[in-house]
Simulated scan of single mutants.
Amino acid sequence: MAQERLQKILAHHGVASRRKAEELIKAGRVTVNGKVARIGQKADPLRDEILLDGKPLPPPPEPLYFLLYKPYGVITSVKDPQGRPTVMDFFRGIKQRLFPVGRLDWDSEGLVLLTNDGELAYRLTHPKFQVPRSYLVKVKGHPDPKVLKKVSEGGLPLQDGPSPKMEVKVVGRTARSTWLHLTLREGRNRVIRRTFELIGHPVRKLRRVAYGPLTLEGLRPGQLRPLTEAEIKELKKWVKLPV
């Protein structure tokens, strides 16, 4: 078997997502042939002895894929040190290890994909693959069309760099607020909320309604379902994985 990056091997064995696997390597918890591993190192899992915390890696698990309609007030994390509800509370009957793909803020609701397929999770969240995420967002007030055009073009000054480009469509108005349909192709932390705070129209509600080809159709908050074979194949096509 050809050599692969360690974080990819760890993800394939269901130990962690590729990003979390990098943290394990940085923490010195992974060794290859008796030596502490380093970021960027490659190995052959059939020839090299790869240990995590001194123990061999588990065999690659059966891949699982679930779609969850995350309610408000739930953390998108495997665990929370403060003891708050997490998305994993909805999967207590499943023994295999799962992890959420990307983030959705505790004060947002909507579509979250959970899997143990580390390579797919990595590609879905990597900017290189430009996977679209769509949101239904309620903002305070009535943004001027010229301002919304600037939002769509991106480049507004945020603390961590320019705001990303996003497709913006007005889908409704009330006396004091505006409903928008937004589509982005990157997932920076609270970037929608920070962008609209910057232009003076803070977000009041946010719901992720689609991730790539997946939608919330047929689900209510707190409900989940496994992905169909067709959906799994479609997701893999989006990120150029073999099906």
Rank of each mutant, 00 (worst) to 15 (best):
L68Y: 06
A43S: 00
D48W: 04
G54A: 11
E62N: 13
T31L: 06
G28I: 06
Y69Q: 09
V36L: 09
T31P: 04
A27S: 12
Y65P: 11
L64A: 14
K20Q: 14
E23P: 09
A27F: 09
P63N: 04
Y72Q: 14
L51D: 07
Q41P: 02
R47Y: 00
I25Q: 02
Y72S: 08
G34P: 01
K20N: 11
T31R: 12
A21Y: 05
G54R: 06
R47I: 05
K42N: 00
R38E: 14
I39K: 04
P63I: 00
D48C: 04
P60C: 03
P58N: 12
R38K: 15
P45N: 01
T76L: 10
R38P: 04
F66K: 07
P58H: 11
K42H: 07
K35P: 00
K79G: 13
R19G: 02
K55H: 13
L67R: 12
D44L: 00
I39L: 15
A21T: 01
Y69D: 09
L64H: 13
L57S: 05
I75E: 12
A37T: 02
L67D: 12
I75Q: 10
L67G: 13
L46T: 15
P61I: 12
K20V: 10
T76Y: 09
I75T: 13
N33F: 00
T76A: 08
V30C: 02
L24M: 07
K42R: 13
Q41D: 12
E62W: 07
R47E: 13
V32H: 05
G40M: 03
P45T: 00
L52A: 06
E22R: 05
K26E: 15
P59K: 14
K79H: 15
P59H: 11
G28A: 06
P58I: 10
L24C: 03
G28W: 10
A43V: 00
P58T: 12
V78P: 03
Q41E: 13
D53I: 08
R29G: 03
T31N: 04
P56D: 09
L51F: 13
K20A: 15
L68H: 05
L24N: 01
A21Q: 02
K79Y: 14
F66L: 10
A27P: 02
L24K: 05
P45H: 01
Y72H: 14
R19T: 03
P60E: 03
V30T: 02
K35N: 02
S77W: 11
V36A: 09
S77K: 06
D48Q: 05
L52P: 08
K26Q: 15
L51A: 11
D48L: 03
G40P: 01
L57I: 06
G54N: 10
P63L: 04
L52D: 06
F66W: 15
V30N: 04
